[in-house]
C-alpha cells in the first residue's frame, strides 16, 4: 500500500469513528428523561435568538477592553522584562522593583485586584483620579497581564544563546545595541506563541470586570438570565467567547509546531 493511500484510509477511519461516537452520545443525551429540562433551561431557541443581539452588543465592551489592554501590555511587559535582565549594579533597585512587581501581580487572584482597585480607589475620591469602572478594569488587567507577559519576554531573551551577544559585543556593538539588533529580534520571534496564549487568558478574564458593574457580555447575560429565569443567554456568551478563543488556540498550536520544525531543521 502506498503512503498516500494508507493516509487516506486513516482519515476515513477517523471520520467514521468520530461520527459514530458523536451520534451515540447525542442519542443517549437526547433520549435521557431529564434532557428536555436541561434543554429548556440552557439551550432554549427563543431565548437564544432574543438574547443574541444584546449579548453581542455588550461583547463590544470586552473587545474594547482586551484590545486596549493588549496594546498597553506589549510595551509595558517588555520594559519590565528588560528591567529584570539589566545586570549593571547601578540598576539593581530597578531590577528588584521589577521582580517584586511580577511576583506580586502574578501571585494575587485577579478578581481580588479588580475588586480592590475598582471599588477601593474610586471610593477615596481623590481629585483628578478617574472613577469609571471601565478605566479601573482596564488598569487592573494591564497590571496583571504585563507581569505575565514580561515573564514570556524574559524567557524569550534568555533562550537566545549568550554567544550571540558575545559576537555582537566583539564587533564593537554596545550592550544596548547588541540587545536591540541581535538578541531582541530573535527573542521576539520565539515569544509569539506563548504571548498569544496569555492573550487568550486575558480575553477570558475580561468577563471578571463584570463584578464592577461594567455591562460587558457576561454581565449582560446575567441581567437577561435574571429577567427570564433562563440560562440560555449565558450559553450565548460562552459561545461568543469560544468563537474568538478557539481560532486563537489553533493558531498558537500551529505556530508552535512551525517553531519546533524550524528549530529542528536549522537555527533560524
Amino acid at each position: 500500500m502506498t503512503a498516500a493511500r494508507s493516509a487516506r484510509k486513516g482519515t476515513l477511519v477517523a471520520v467514521i469513528s468520530t461520527l459514530v461516537v458523536a451520534t451515540l452520545v447525542a442519542i443517549s443525551i437526547g433520549s435521557s428523561p431529564s434532557w428536555p429540562l436541561v434543554q429548556k433551561a440552557f439551550f432554549d431557541g427563543t431565548y437564544f435568538s432574543s438574547s443574541l443581539p444584546d449579548v453581542i452588543g455588550a461583547f463590544a465592551i470586552n473587545i474594547q477592553l482586551f484590545v486596549l489592554a493588549e496594546i498597553l501590555i506589549l510595551p509595558i511587559g517588555l520594559l519590565i522584562a528588560l528591567a529584570r535582565s539589566i545586570t549593571n549594579p547601578a540598576f539593581t533597585p530597578l531590577r528588584i522593583f521589577a521582580t517584586i512587581y511580577t511576583d506580586f501581580f502574578r501571585g494575587v487572584p485577579s478578581i481580588l485586584l479588580i475588586y480592590v482597585l475598582g471599588f477601593g480607589v474610586p471610593a477615596l475620591r481623590l481629585p483628578g483620579v478617574p472613577k469609571e469602572p471601565f478605566f479601573w478594569a482596564l488598569v487592573t488587567l494591564v497590571l496583571i497581564y504585563s507581569a505575565y507577559v514580561s515573564e514570556v519576554y524574559r524567557a524569550g531573551i534568555e533562550s537566545i544563546h549568550p554567544s550571540q551577544e558575545r559576537a555582537a559585543r566583539a564587533l564593537g556593538l554596545t550592550r544596548f545595541q547588541a540587545l536591540r539588533y541581535v538578541v531582541l529580534p530573535q527573542a521576539l520571534r520565539r515569544v509569539v506563541p506563548p504571548l498569544l496564549n496569555d492573550f487568550i487568558g486575558l480575553q477570558k478574564d475580561t468577563a471578571l470586570v463584570s463584578i464592577l458593574g461594567v455591562v460587558e457580555a457576561f454581565k449582560q447575560a446575567q441581567i437577561l438570565k435574571s429577567a427570564n429565569f433562563n440560562f440560555t443567554p449565558l450559553m450565548v456568551t460562552a459561545l461568543i467567547f469560544l468563537v474568538i478563543t478557539i481560532p486563537m488556540t489553533r493558531l498558537v498550536d500551529c505556530l508552535a509546531a512551525k517553531d519546533r520544525a524550524t528549530q529542528q531543521g536549522g537555527t533560524r
Binding site: S163, Q164, T267
Partner: peptide, 8 residues
C-alpha cells in the same frame, strides 16, 4: 571557532 553568525 563556533561561527555565531546572527541567524535572523
Amino acid at each position: 571557532q563556533g561561527f555565531s553568525l546572527f541567524p535572523h
